[in-house]
């Protein structure tokens, strides 16, 4: 079983294609985000406009680690998604790659501490929260948010956490379990785990 942690070509492609997919989905949201941003600019809260969509930033890493369940899968998934986003053209260019590493690490840390064995709802929600906090610390340093009033930052962090928990803590496991039930993820670590859960539920095991 020594090659369980090795990346197969189809793992790489799955993660990369999910990165592209959410890049495309995200583009659809930038209109909504841009609208909110414009709406909030006169009241000085422009940056808050993008916070509801932060969960989608983290989604590639969340899917990667939840499906593949091997060391580094969250960080690598997020890194691939960031490189792809950079290829698609963006005014932040390669800086996206820096944020990608922070996001992947933030999401994977708790799962890593649980040795890639515990993917319960509590762990996924905790990962989503930690990822939000990590990226906020990154913003404090890189975006200069350390000069912004604390209540405003807390408001932004709050919205970011809600978004991350909804998309990454709850939606990602739900959609993945749906895929497993549809028989789409045979051969992936998540399929074995979810099948055992289902067996236990129905009492077949």
């Amino acid at each position: 079983m020594q090659n369980k942690n090795e990346w197969k070509l189809k793992d790489v492609l799955l993660v990369a294609i999910l990165g592209v997919l959410f890049g495309v989905v995200y583009l659809g949201c930038t209109y909504a985000g841009g609208f909110l941003y414009g709406l909030l600019t006169p009241v000085g809260l422009a940056s808050l406009g993008y916070e509801p969509f932060y969960g989608i930033y983290f989604i590639a890493g969340a899917f990667g680690v939840y499906i593949l369940r091997k060391p580094g899968s969250g960080i690598i998934a997020e890194l691939l998604a960031a490189i792809l986003e950079c290829l698609m053209g963006n005014f932040f260019g390669p800086i996206i790659i820096l944020s990608g590493i922070v996001q992947g690490l933030g999401f994977e840390l708790i799962i890593m501490l649980r040795k890639y064995k515990d993917f319960s709802t509590a762990v996924m929600i905790a990962s989503a929260v930690l990822c939000s906090v990590f990226t906020m610390i990154y913003n404090l340093i890189i975006s200069g948010y350390n000069r912004i009033a604390v209540p405003v930052l807390l408001l932004m962090l709050g919205v970011r956490i809600v978004s991350a928990v909804l998309f990454d803590g709850l939606l990602v496991p739900a959609l993945t379990k749906g895929l497993v039930k549809a028989g789409m993820l045979k051969g992936y670590a998540v399929a074995d785990a979810v099948d055992t859960d289902l067996d236990e539920l129905t009492g077949i095991a």
């Binding site: 189809k10 492609l13 990369a16 294609i17 999910l18 997919l21 659809g28 939606l171 789409m184």
Partner: peptide, 23 residues
Amino acid sequence: SLRPKILFTMLVNSVRWSESVAM
């Protein structure tokens, strides 16, 4: 595009693509 049903359909397509491109 963020409706779970639409995301699910796209996910199914993505998994299929990744398998056939790898093959």
